[in-house]
Simulated scan of single mutants.
Amino acid sequence: MSERSTHELVEAYVLSRRKAKHLSTHLAIRAIRTLSPAPEVSDRELEDMIETAAIEHGVAIALLRNRREINL
């Protein structure tokens, strides 16, 4: 399997959640970090990418309440 960019992982995750009631940014970050643990971007940057993709695809978002880094 070829390595996928963080952007591709974000897009794939958001699209996979289209039919769900909402997308949790916290769970999205955890899922994406599981697939790509190398820190290309910070959790904050990743959260922004997820929010942008969700808005672009019309997916409802449940935002993180605390902006601290997520420890897995």
Rank of each mutant, 00 (worst) to 15 (best):
M1H: 08
M1C: 12
M1D: 11
S2E: 15
E3P: 01
E3I: 07
S5V: 07
S5I: 04
S5K: 08
T6N: 03
T6K: 10
E8I: 01
L9R: 06
L9M: 04
V10C: 02
V10M: 01
V10T: 03
E11K: 14
E11L: 15
A12L: 07
V14E: 02
V14I: 04
V14L: 01
V14N: 01
V14R: 01
L15K: 01
L15S: 00
L15Y: 00
S16I: 00
K21F: 05
H22M: 00
H22K: 06
H22D: 02
S24N: 02
S24F: 04
S24R: 02
H26D: 13
L27F: 07
L27C: 11
L27K: 07
A28Q: 06
A28R: 03
I29E: 13
I29K: 12
R30M: 07
R30L: 10
R30H: 05
A31L: 04
A31C: 06
A31G: 05
I32L: 07
I32D: 10
R33C: 05
R33A: 10
R33M: 05
T34G: 09
T34V: 04
S36N: 15
S36I: 15
P37Y: 08
P37M: 11
P37A: 13
A38N: 13
P39A: 14
P39K: 15
P39Y: 13
E40Q: 12
E40H: 15
E40V: 13
E40K: 09
V41S: 11
V41P: 06
S42V: 06
S42R: 07
S42W: 10
D43Y: 04
D43I: 06
D43N: 15
R44L: 10
E45N: 11
E45C: 09
E45H: 09
L46H: 06
E47L: 03
E47W: 06
M49T: 01
M49R: 12
M49V: 02
I50R: 07
I50D: 12
E51G: 05
E51P: 04
E51N: 09
E51I: 12
T52Q: 14
T52I: 14
T52V: 13
A53C: 09
A53M: 12
A53K: 10
I55E: 14
H57C: 08
H57P: 03
A60P: 08
A60E: 03
I61C: 02
A62T: 05
A62H: 09
L63G: 07
L63R: 15
L64E: 13
L64H: 10
R65T: 15
N66L: 13
N66C: 09
R68D: 15
R68H: 11
E69I: 09
I70D: 05
N71V: 06
